[in-house]
Amino acid sequence: MSFRTVVEATPRLHRSELAVPASRPAIFEKAAASAADLVFLDLEDAVAPDEKEAARRNAIDALRTIDWGSKIMAVRINGLDTHYMYRDVVDLIEQAGERLDLFIVPKVGDAKDVYALDMLTSQVEAAMGRRKRMGFSLIVETALGLANVERIAEESPRIEALQMGVADLAASLRMRTTNIGGPVDDYASAAGVLDAWQFPMSRVIAAARAAGRRPIAGPFGNFKDAEGLEAAARRARALGAEGMMAIHPSQIGIINTVFTPSEAEIRQARRILEAMEEATRAGRGAVALDGRLLDIASIRQAEALLEKVKMLG
């Protein structure tokens, strides 16, 4: 075990996050009523250049006037390579109030990107006397970002999550696909279709977990393919992802179900902790359960799962 202690990000229930174009205020109330754990109002890809300023005003107004319940509220700002980004940050912190929890930051390529955004955010927060610290959720969606993901993940204590952007990443890597997530043609074997996203997703997950951040899987573009969505979500969960982006409200239910611990998992976690408590009372340093030796890693896994259950009520 390393001497270094990993400080975990602010704990939040983050199974599903719903993308909502900030240029479409007519659907904000529906998003607020959805079962998504996180809603982000999008100022980036979903908004045309001539609508950017209006979309920003819509997001500010929505954060101040709509009842979003207990959802994590986020805004995906424009990229650091655009002239929209600094005004997104300044106006949102100055005008949107304390309801905004996170900036979702697209196309992060280098730790310096995070440093620059952190500096700007800190200065505006200090000027406004903002009580709640703004968090960051960083999207890794370029070859540069994937190559630098470990350094990116550790750059700022504001970082709460790392997530993978599949469409832009596919373009950056020159992958032979035009799909948003899901199977990639030609990437198969005699045993069946393989997951072309496993390496980048695994790398993002490892970097996130090593730095104490939440890893979030990229979206599945075909919102009419429920079976494909569930399979993609289960693969991401198996690799260690904590949640997944939804590009359509119809995807939220499946994503929440996949990333919610099952009754069997909950029972087993409780049995593990009970067995370890019993061993401690008896003065034993280790204990076997169902023919398997339990150790400190087993306890941590069980505790993490039950902590998520507690958030679910």
Rank of each mutant, 00 (worst) to 15 (best):
A167I: 04
R174E: 11
E150F: 11
L173N: 13
G165D: 10
A171W: 00
E155N: 12
S172N: 11
A153K: 06
E160I: 04
A170W: 01
R174N: 14
P157K: 03
V166K: 01
V149S: 15
A170H: 04
E155D: 15
E160L: 07
A153N: 09
V166E: 07
D168V: 00
V149N: 12
V149C: 14
E155C: 13
A171H: 02
E160A: 01
D168I: 02
S156L: 00
E154A: 15
G165R: 02
V149K: 14
M175E: 12
A161E: 15
M164F: 05
A153E: 07
A171M: 04
S156Y: 00
A167N: 13
E154T: 14
S156G: 12
A167K: 04
L162E: 12
V149T: 10
A153T: 05
T177W: 11
M175I: 12
P157A: 08
L162A: 07
I152W: 03
T177H: 03
A171R: 01
E155A: 15
R176H: 12
L173S: 15
T177L: 09
D168E: 06
R151F: 08
D168P: 05
P157L: 02
E150W: 10
R176I: 05
D168L: 01
V166R: 02
G165P: 10
A161T: 11
A167C: 10
I152T: 07
A171T: 01
V149M: 15
R158L: 08
R151H: 11
A170R: 01
M164L: 15
P157W: 00
S156F: 02
A167V: 08
E150R: 14
M175F: 14
A153H: 07
Q163Y: 09
E150A: 10
A170E: 04
E154C: 07
D168Y: 00
E160F: 01
P157M: 00
R158C: 13
A153V: 01
R158P: 13
T178D: 13
V149F: 11
L169Y: 01
L162Q: 06
G165I: 00
A167T: 15
L169S: 03
M164D: 12
R158T: 10
T177M: 07
M164P: 08
E155G: 13
D168C: 02
T178P: 06
R151K: 13
R158Y: 08
E160W: 01
S156H: 03
